[in-house]
């Protein structure tokens, strides 16, 4: 239960390009913060530096006011859940969970009591004497979580803990993680490349790209107001319209068209972005844009059209009740309230 502060972390392997640049992040007590990014964005590197499994090239790590930047991994008093779960194959579930307490020289009686309680919390009572190989993926995941939480860590680090589970189990496990985290009020860093997963359980999300934080905000803020084109692309914006200039207040020039927006025009805007399901399909008329459908895919809840339009190729979602054929024209408007100007 603690605050985590990362100050100007930088990491370079050998003589290669830096994988982290000047990364700073503050995590409040009891929060669950996700590091979201594609592979190679530096999110796992950051986590491993916090854990002490990697030594940063420069920068400081603080837990509350403790500078742990140079503390060896086995003295940091954190916990980590690994992508492979990393359960000790030669120990039973009980012994796996008890391992960290044994290191802390906790008495036998207290160990038994705490492990038993944690196994109950994670629903593993009946499996205490089994070996990891005898468990399903979800059960192994719970053991990994129980092993990490039973030591009352100052900080819980989760490295893509759900990526080896099937889709259904992933949803229930992430809810379980959130439930335990809230119940124990453990400050948690969660690394993932799955946008939906991290939005579902995080207090705040840091979107990483090439070793830098692109945006650090609450999930809702990131969802509605991505700060950069990279963030917008990563969380599902599909249409990016390059801005050629400002026409008037609340209007930008895109190609030879004028596009109206709801926010004050700003000389710095470089692209306008909008989600496929925010583009409105309308009957033909004045001020209505038209384009020809080149590809149609069925998404279940909607059709997604790729449309050749005066603004360039656009991704537009349309209702399943009235499909438009490939080659046919599609008429639409870009609602000003949904268009988002981005600076980079």
């Amino acid at each position: 239960m603690a605050r985590l502060t990362l100050e100007n972390l930088a990491m370079t392997y050998g003589h290669g390009d830096p994988v982290l640049h000047d990364l700073s992040l503050a995590v409040a007590d009891g929060q669950l913060v996700s590091l979201l990014g594609p592979s190679g964005s530096g999110k796992t590197t950051t986590l491993r530096i916090i854990a002490g499994l990697l030594q940063q090239t420069s920068g400081t790590i603080k837990v509350d006011d403790d500078d742990i930047s140079r503390v060896p991994v086995y003295k940091r008093g954190l916990s980590m859940v690994f992508q492979s779960y990393a359960l000790f194959p030669h120990l039973t579930v009980f012994a796996n969970v008890a391992y960290g307490l044994k290191r802390q020289r906790i008495s036998k009686a207290e160990t038994t009591q705490r492990v038993t309680a944690m196994l109950a919390t994670t629903g593993l009572n009946d499996l205490a004497e089994r070996y990891p190989q005898e468990l399903s993926g979800g059960q192994q995941q719970r053991v990994a979580l129980a092993r990490a939480l039973v030591v009352d860590p100052r900080l819980l680090l989760l490295d893509e803990p759900l990526s080896n589970l099937d889709a259904k189990l992933r949803v229930s496990m992430r809810e379980e993680i959130r439930r335990l985290q809230l119940q124990l009020h453990t400050t948690t860093i969660f690394v993932t490349h799955d946008q939906e997963e991290c939005f579902a359980i995080s207090d705040k999300v840091a979107v990483l790209n090439q070793g830098k934080i692109e945006q650090y905000a609450a999930p809702e803020e990131i969802y509605h107001h991505p700060a950069t084109e990279f963030v917008a692309r990563f969380i599902g914006f599909e249409n990016f319209l390059p801005v050629n200039g400002t026409v008037a207040d609340h209007a930008y020039r895109v190609g030879d068209q004028t596009v109206r927006v709801n926010v004050a025009t700003d000389g710095a805007a470089k692209v306008l972005t909008i989600r496929p399901n925010q583009i409105r399909l309308v009957p033909e008329g004045p001020e209505v844009l038209s384009g020809q459908v080149t590809i149609r895919t069925y998404l279940g809840s909607a059709y997604r059209y790729t449309v050749d339009s005066p603004l360039g190729a656009l991704q537009i979602d349309g209702p399943t009740e009235a499909p438009v054929a490939v080659g046919a024209p599609l008429h639409f408007t870009l609602p000003a309230e949904h268009l988002l100007p981005l600076e980079a």
Partner: peptide
Amino acid sequence: LNPEIEEAAAVLGSRPFT
């Protein structure tokens, strides 16, 4: 050997010899 298993032990407080 899975290196993450050794890392897990280290994070939980084990020195290299342990």
